[in-house]
């Protein structure tokens, strides 16, 4: 992996030619993430088309609250940072620290999902549920798809904590941890699109 880069030119050649199964798995997971990005881009496009179709129901400036979007952004960004600390701890083989930062990431991700669920409940209670207009359908589809991804990430974090506790930081476990890291960072990247396209223009 990174150790190969440090070797003199030529000596590392054989290693680069050989198949590194974990590199292949990471590339395969990257393919999945890019296809997921295409799905999200189409949900974004649908939202952009539907944003004006409020059918007499609530528009974005009436239903969105800037503080909620801000706290969700802070929670997700902080969790991306704590996952960086997971990666660093795992690379140094520090098992307890790795688990600790994973738990911190889980808590921040849980706070994010909690904010999102409370916002959905608030909207539905004020009569702005997903069935009210094209705008609200597109909004709930886009944001809830992202929220479901984050929830799946929370399950995955739980599984990884169990694997580290039972098996330790073995090569397959660290490799899975790296792919979970890619997934988690990807979700923060999608969230940048959500607050830039949905919430910020919505409250204007």
């Amino acid at each position: 992996m990174t150790a190969c880069d440090a070797e003199p030119f030529g000596l590392a050649h054989g290693k680069h030619e050989g198949i590194d199964i974990y590199k292949v798995r990471e590339l395969g997971f990257w393919l999945y993430l890019c296809s997921d990005a295409v799905i999200f881009s189409l949900l974004f496009a649908t939202y952009c088309i539907m944003v004006g179709n409020t059918a007499g129901a609530a528009s974005g400036s009436r239903v969105f609250e800037l503080p909620t979007a801000f706290f969700e952004t802070v929670a997700l960004l902080a969790s991306t940072f704590t996952f960086g600390l997971v990666t660093l701890s795992a690379a140094r083989g520090e098992r307890r620290l790795t688990i600790g930062w994973l738990v911190a990431t889980f808590v921040l991700g849980g706070v994010f999902v909690g904010f999102e669920l409370s916002e959905f409940v608030r909207l539905i209670e004020m009569g702005a549920g997903p069935g009210k207009s094209g705008f609200l359908s597109a909004y709930f589809t886009l944001v809830a798809t992202h929220g479901l991804h984050v929830s799946a990430g929370l399950v995955w974090i739980t599984v990884m904590v169990a694997q580290i506790m039972i098996r330790g930081l073995t090569e397959p476990v660290v490799s899975r941890l790296a792919r979970l890291g890619l997934f988690w960072r990807f979700l923060d990247l999608i969230w940048i699109g959500i607050f830039s396209i949905v919430y910020l223009p919505g409250v204007l």
Binding site: A37, V38, S41, L42, F44, A45
Partner: peptide, 14 residues
């Protein structure tokens, strides 16, 4: 390549 697909599909839709 994913960016190209996104430009064609999402941009084309819009």
């Amino acid at each position: 390549f994913a960016v190209l697909l996104i430009v064609i599909m999402a941009g084309g839709t819009l």
